[in-house]
Design a protein around this nucleic acid. Structure first.
Lengths: 251, 251
DNA sequence: TGTACATCAGTGAACGCGCGTTCACTGATGTAC
DNA sequence: TGTACATCAGTGAACGCGCGTTCACTGATGTAC
């Protein structure tokens, strides 16, 4: 079912990896036109998502916007759900990229507190700039839709950034030995993102991660109205508190 | 617009407050039939919500279930949004009631840790038992719908329970003097739920509140798949950690 | 290099379904004199 | 107590709109000999 999506990803990579695409202009004219249209459809869908949310996403409306007939979309996406999957992956990559960029922008790699703060603020900024994309991936599940396994690596990018900062803060090299299984967390987690992190810190790391998204979600979905005056300052304060509880700075 | 909802609430109260309703059987036969039907509609809507989520909520389907014509619903609810409002209020009251009950069930009122844990677990249990209701109030906003002011008091019930426990833990009487405004939190909050709570504790209380719902949301919406093995034990551990960070128990 | 065939993009019509809301109307229930 | 009138519940048809998906088809683009 997802073959199209994979095809798209492959094509995008092809475009990026193959610089001399003009050297063979004959072959793949159709393929390139196809890739361009897939991109155009996804982009239009992304715009509709941003404007009206996932519920208002309609193949017909997208086709209308592109000046084509609705059935033509089926040449590129086998169904609405596959288009949704493409958008979900895009959203995860977008927020994940924002987090990675914010982390990388801190020159002093040893300043884990600055990196932590940068990433948290980047997540919040991204969410505020893309509320519907955020709701698509971190809000209520779309009814009747189950995210395919292919989305997972994209979904974990933010957590890997945060975990990396924590590991740097704890001075754990990439060769750290995995901690014994705690029963609470999966071996998968303890052997990848949180490898070498003691259980106590691992749990608190997960908590801070959920807290970060809990705060962003509550602010974005309007649950803080009437409770918080200065949302920016409040969030900054929360980020600092979380940095302490996660062990990045001493109390 | 919400007059119907108010009418419903009034009626329900009337039924509860007035025990000798049979003493005046003539007057209000129509009114009682009306109240019964409003209740039936809301109940059917609640069932549909539980089964298919807010997106699948349709006046026509509800009318069909009740064996009446779709336009008849408009005798009781002026629009779909008003029905949604009724459901939102019901959901908030349901989870709020669950929290209050869990708190009240702890006999030893001085054992604030036990009360804290009981309420947190009640919130999670309610969410797991009523995922669509939870998503309705704590998930993505329903597109095109803005919650009227009337929902606010129902929405705050859980937070009042948690705040009450915190205030008991800090041994603050009901006559505590409000703390000076911090600039972060609203005066409204500092003068009601968190009256007398020092700013440091107030911020951490809000954080724990958001964290609680962040955890429940992530678990419910599937974000923890692959990271957590024993969800029950993990949640319990989180609740204990939060109790510490909020100042209910010493480290 | 030219031709025959296969592949593919896009069309247009249709299927079958759903929805919220309005409106004129019938009949029953309550109310005032 | 009985009658005239007003209120209200529920009907049935209609408006106007949307959607995802299928299918037979045309015409253009690529491919193999």
């Amino acid at each position: 079912v997802l073959s199209i999506v994979y095809t798209v990803l492959e094509m995008c990579e092809d475009d990026a990896v193959e610089p001399d695409v003009d050297a063979r202009p004959v072959a793949g004219v159709r393929a390139r036109a196809r890739a361009a249209l897939v991109a155009e459809i996804t982009e239009t869908a992304r715009r509709h998502l941003a404007e009206q949310g996932a519920a208002g996403l309609s193949l017909r409306a997208i086709a209308r916007d592109l000046g084509m007939v609705s059935s033509a979309i089926y040449r590129y996406f086998p169904s609405r759900d596959d288009l949704l999957t493409a958008l979900i992956i895009e959203a995860y990559d977008s927020i994940g990229g924002a987090a990675e960029q914010a982390d990388a922008a801190v020159a002093d790699r040893a300043n884990v507190l600055a990196r932590w703060r940068a990433v948290c603020h980047a997540v919040r900024q991204w969410a505020k700039a893309n509320p519907h994309e955020y709701a698509l991936v971190y809000g209520s599940p779309v009814p009747g839709y189950v995210a395919p396994q292919a989305t997972v690596p994209h979904a974990t990018r933010v957590s890997f950034v945060l975990a990396g900062i924590l590991r740097d803060g704890l001075r754990l090299g990439p060769d750290a030995a995995p901690q014994p299984s705690t029963g609470l967390l999966t071996d998968e987690l303890l052997e990848t993102a949180l490898v070498g992190v003691p259980e106590e810190h691992a749990v608190r790391a997960l908590m801070a991660w959920m807290e970060l998204f809990g705060i962003v979600t509550f602010e974005l979905f309007g649950q803080l109205v009437g409770a918080v005056d200065d949302a920016d300052a409040f969030f900054d304060r929360c980020v600092s508190e979380m940095a302490v509880s996660v062990g990045l700075v001493g109390t």
